[in-house]
Design a protein around this nucleic acid. Structure first.
Lengths: 316, 316
DNA sequence: ATGAGGGCATAAGCTGGGGTTATGAGTGGG
DNA sequence: CCCACTCATAACCCCAGCTTATGCCCTCAT
């Protein structure tokens, strides 16, 4: 796939595979329950297991992590100081798992679901799972099905009556659809921290960016489309150094190949805060784009589609 | 703890406990390996298991999710379209788990670690794990120990020689320490989507905010400190409606109790994109604060401390 | 005082998911 | 045409995590 080869670099983390050093989801959920409920027994009941099971599980986790997490007393259990910290990190994992669950559930429900959503890749990857978690919290019964594709595919599904609500990023508003802006995204020029551009506080010029071979998604992706348009005035985009199929492959290539790329802000948020990637400012270039909800012209969204639309307004 | 009671509301998600519907970390890692390496067998070897085990595991996962993830052929395996999407969501979970691992490893290493870091709560919760993952990727051998506390505690540790590098947010630069700004954070006024403030596009005035009883962290937290200072000119902060010990408890209370709060942008990023919370703009109020690295005056960071410092520059 | 009740720990026993080895069957390149 | 690679199936094994059954400790109300 990309330039990264697993056999070559042994995972780059500290020791064996991750799941030997991280408790499983059940244990993390249990820990959250203990934090919330203040007692192993109650937490156990909440998780549908017995108290000894919970006790043992927490103990195992403490041994595995080498840290005391809960302070047991005859009147209940409270989190240790370290336990509070661990619990917060655990919550991040559980929330990611919830998003995973929401996303995959939507993927499973094929035609029969009550709300059929079609979304572009970036939105499906980074935004939709969060929305679905929120939707589920608000309207627990709603069954959602998801179809991911580019703008054209989304439009086709909607017009064919095979989807109730769509989400696209990009500049074009497909014909025959009504639309509303739900937020904004921005493309960011990113480079590995070791790349010369990473030190440029002053920023690039648009011409400089246009002249540099980049690592990019393949032509036709929404991201690529916006970039092409933005750089049309600056001499047009240089031939890409590498064209890859997935955003993730691009990110991996940027990190390792030491060539820059342009990616959605949403896609690189994590990498930027962890400094695996660095954003390079570009002077005088508009790389913003609108995130839009779309639906068949005239058919104002109702029912679950309306609920979801309400949730997504004014993001980013 | 807060207003949320598990016995009352049954978890608010779709069905049974999460870990019955989400594959465990091992399976997710395996899926990522398959995506990266293009073959079940290679992925298996990379994970240190045998090919049949990998085969069975992926198959189990496909049954569990009800979606075909990989397309098997005699020349390898490629991801399905759905599989690519699932893999991306899986990656988010695995990355959260990596952060968990990095954080807890640091917590475990007590005194003997080579790099001893002291950090304020917000930074320890939301930023440090990501940095540690990056550090580990860059300098695999580094053993880090972590101590979390408020600004004063961080300063004490550094001055006592019990920590090599510290991170604080807030306005005060503790005496006897050298410091550099590594980024900026911003406090955000947040409310539940149902709260009247959530509809205010025009924004609040500072006086309005000051006059409203909020849900807050207890006095002494860095967040609270900044807020007090910022509202001193606007008549001072009203008596809080509720004072809670952890950021998470505050978030939960905001969602359920329908009273607003003021929290670090870092802490509510997830909730904002999922619209579990809504940010309310405030006119003419400076709620930014600097994130600073600190170390004992004169002792310029060297070795691993220098590495970590290099990683964290210019975040947010 | 003293029992009732909630909270945690320990012990013994079962079960199944996930691992292994061994093998077979399909496909494309030399 | 056979080798080298892929994946699937089968038979077996093991231990993580569950259960039930107990006991101790502490607190609070009678």
């Amino acid at each position: 796939m990309s330039g990264t080869d697993e056999a070559g670099l042994p995972a780059a983390d500290g020791g064996g595979p991750l799941h030997h050093r991280v408790p499983d989801l059940g244990a993390l959920e249990l820990l959250l329950a203990v934090a919330r409920l203040g007692s192993l027994g109650r937490a156990a009941r909440a998780q549908g297991i017995t108290q000894p099971a919970a006790s043992s599980r927490i103990r195992t986790m403490e041994r595995q992590l080498g840290v005391a997490l809960v302070e047991r007393s005859p009147r209940g259990s409270r989190l240790t100081e370290a336990g509070a910290l661990v619990t917060d990190w655990a919550r991040q994992v559980v929330e990611a798992a919830e998003a995973f669950d929401a996303g995959t559930s939507a993927l499973r429900g094929r035609r029969d679901s009550r709300l059929r959503v079609a979304a572009s890749m970036t939105i499906a990857e980074y935004l939709l799972p969060g929305w679905l978690v929120a939707l589920r919290a608000q309207r627990p019964g709603t069954a959602v099905s998801l179809l991911a594709g580019n703008s054209r595919a989304v439009a086709e599904r909607l017009l064919a009556g095979e989807a109730d609500l769509g989400f696209v990023e990009g500049l074009d508003v497909p014909a025959g659809l009504d639309t509303t802006v739900i937020g904004h995204d921005r493309l960011a020029v990113v480079a590995a921290p070791a790349h010369p551009w990473a030190r440029r506080r002053s920023g690039l010029t648009a011409a400089e960016l246009a002249a540099t071979p980049l690592i990019l998604r393949e032509r036709g992706s929404g991201t690529r489309q916006v970039l092409d348009a933005a750089l049309a005035g600056a001499g047009g985009l240089a031939a890409p150094l590498l064209e890859l199929a997935s955003t993730t492959a691009v990110k991996a290539a940027v990190v390792s190949e030491a060539a820059p790329s342009v990616l959605s802000e949403l896609a690189v948020r994590e990498e930027l805060t962890a400094r695996r990637l660095v954003e390079v400012p570009v002077r005088g270039l508009q790389l913003g784009r609108e995130l839009r909800a779309v639906w068949p012209a005239g058919q104002r969204p109702a029912g679950p589609a309306r609920d979801l639309l309400g949730l997504t307004r004014r993001v980013a």
